[in-house]
Design a protein around this nucleic acid. Structure first.
Lengths: 332, 332
DNA sequence: AGAATGCATAAAACGGTTTGCCTGCTCCCT
DNA sequence: AGGGAGCAGGCAAACCGTTTTATGCATTCT
């Protein structure tokens, strides 16, 4: 159906090798170059990347495993990753793991059987053993946002612990002492943030009741239910830190429903809220990740491994997060 | 590096054809089946889909062209599409067009050269001529959400015109007459919605000043600037319809900044706002699209064309949208 | 004249599927 | 019991559309 280089050979009388050389930027006699270009034009020829990949062992395709494609943070990162890859002539094969480790594992097999040149992973959970298959196939892997305890893979993230510490310190600076947190306890990022929370309190010699720590599965629900629980306590906190985008949505919604006004009754600070934080009234204070830089860096690392052989020990790049000002914290 | 079917041949003493037959579910002697399975296990063999695709002309991969991967609506749709495709053994090759028709065209070439079996398109603009290349290559295409005027391709969408009409009628039902709209005028969906706006006003014999119609490029900015313009008019509207997700964010933010309270000073109704609408206070009224159904349907149509030959005239499936209740409309 | 250079060519990969043919077995009939 | 029909399953070889590697033929330089 589609034209092949054989059709071009028949039309130009040249050999396959010459045409292939032209396609790959090699030197060809001007006369022949013209001939080939005319044929390509006329036959609407396009290289079959399947065939090319089969022989070169490079598909110019990067697999991306994401824990949840509906997550805004992920969507934004995909945008930047896509741009960075595109600039380097690579495409993305995106697989949504739907927050399910089983699906994640299957997706990895899918990517490997498609012979992607490398894989970017926004991991579902804490267990990175499913990535063994990639290691066995010698396909480079870079973890983004969430990593694992063992340091087997390159990784790009923010210093979540320090970021959370800064958020807590911000609240303390405004005079708060009764500070609560809602964060995930099933993946790396949330756990690190939880540690940062403890660090900051310890530094300042503050203790808070254990009910002030709401842990669970990264979700809207966690934020919603968690905030309700907090606000119904006999001694509710004066400030709450919402440990990620989804819990922020849930938390804000619950606070609204219970009629708590912010920052009058309750101070808030969130994570990754971007546009959202500016739409909500009052504007939310929040921790921002340098998403574009992180994406560029992750792509750099991956493409390096691809072109320079997948060698050398794993690198861990840790960016520091900033804080974006809002009106959601009351001075006490 | 990776094991091939030849390694399995060497290990089992069988022929390539037999192994291939096994891999594709054909009948094989129990003895041989066992032999093959052991070899596969031991060698960690995985089919090379590149090689398979080269000969079968099917890659079990669907290309998805999206106008903006950062858009929440798109993220949600990708989730449902991914699930539906996964159930049928297909993967997704997603390309972000960054709202740029040039990039969109390049992305299409990218997909075609990867020999995807079919393409789902969330189109950037109104001009579908770039899809000629897909037609030439006989790769089936299904448009989602946004279609073009000519009816050359299958298409799944909501009846945007009717949806907007319902939104307007809802406001009229609450007693509003000074109704404004902010919508995109550069892509199909927005234009249809704008028509629905006019329809509804006409039906009720209502006329509104032309300044009540804010048109531009689908974006946060449009909503933000548009809302400011509306609220600074000498005779501002009592109600505003925000024609899509992004303009809703912008519009709400501008109204907040100018100190307009909703629904006291201003009634609002948005599109596709999902979670968001429940987080914003007051909860927003909004138009909901049946995203899961749309996705399933689009995948059905595409896979049908793939397996039954890409024949028959284009189908247009139009779902009707619902309205989700909130507190953002005042009775007049 | 001989070496060096510039292009083109034919043929062998890459890792699968598919086709046509062959073998050997079962079954039934005379 | 012997023989042919029918069939299940295996095999070798051709093929899919590229790249790559020797190899060869002119032309130019020294």
């Amino acid at each position: 159906m589609a034209a092949t280089i054989r059709d071009i050979r028949d039309r130009t009388g040249l050999s396959l090798a010459t045409i292939s050389k032209y396609l790959n930027g090699g030197n060809v006699l001007p006369r022949n170059r013209k001939l080939i270009e005319e044929a390509i034009e006329e036959l609407h020829y396009e290289v079959n990347e399947l065939a090319r990949g089969l022989v070169t062992n490079r598909t110019k395709t990067i697999g991306v495993l994401v824990y949840d494609i509906q997550c805004i943070f992920v969507g934004n990162m995909l945008h930047y990753l896509g741009q960075a890859l595109h600039e380097n002539g690579y495409g993305m094969l995106i697989c949504d793991s739907c927050n399910d480790a089983e699906i994640e594992k299957k997706n990895l097999q899918f990517l490997l059987s498609r012979k992607v040149d490398g894989i970017l992973v926004f991991a579902v959970g804490l267990d990175g053993s499913f990535l063994e298959a990639a290691k066995r196939a010698d396909v480079p892997v870079v973890l983004i946002d969430r990593s694992f305890r063992n340091e087997e893979f390159d990784c790009v993230e923010i210093d979540n612990r320090a970021a959370m510490r800064r958020a807590v310190n911000k609240l303390i600076g405004f005079g708060h002492r009764r500070i609560a947190v809602i964060a995930s306890n099933i993946e790396y990022t949330g756990m690190e943030r939880m540690k940062g929370f403890e660090d900051a309190l310890k530094d300042e010699g503050i203790t808070v009741p254990d009910e002030y720590r709401i842990r669970g599965k990264h979700s809207f629900e966690l934020g919603y239910q968690g905030m309700r629980k907090l606000l119904e306590l006999r001694d509710p906190p004066t400030a709450v830190i919402l440990g990620n985008y989804d819990t922020t949505l849930g938390g804000v919604m619950a606070a609204n429903e219970l009629g708590f006004s912010c920052p009058g009754d309750l101070s808030l600070i969130g994570f990754d809220d971007l546009l959202m934080s500016k739409v909500i009234r009052p504007r939310l204070w929040f921790v921002v990740q340098p998403m574009e830089e992180m994406s560029k860096r992750a792509v750099d690392m991956l493409l390096n491994r691809i072109s320079n052989g997948n060698e050398g020990s794993p690198l861990r790049i840790s960016f520091s997060a900033g804080i974006s000002e809002g009106d959601s914290i009351r001075k006490i």
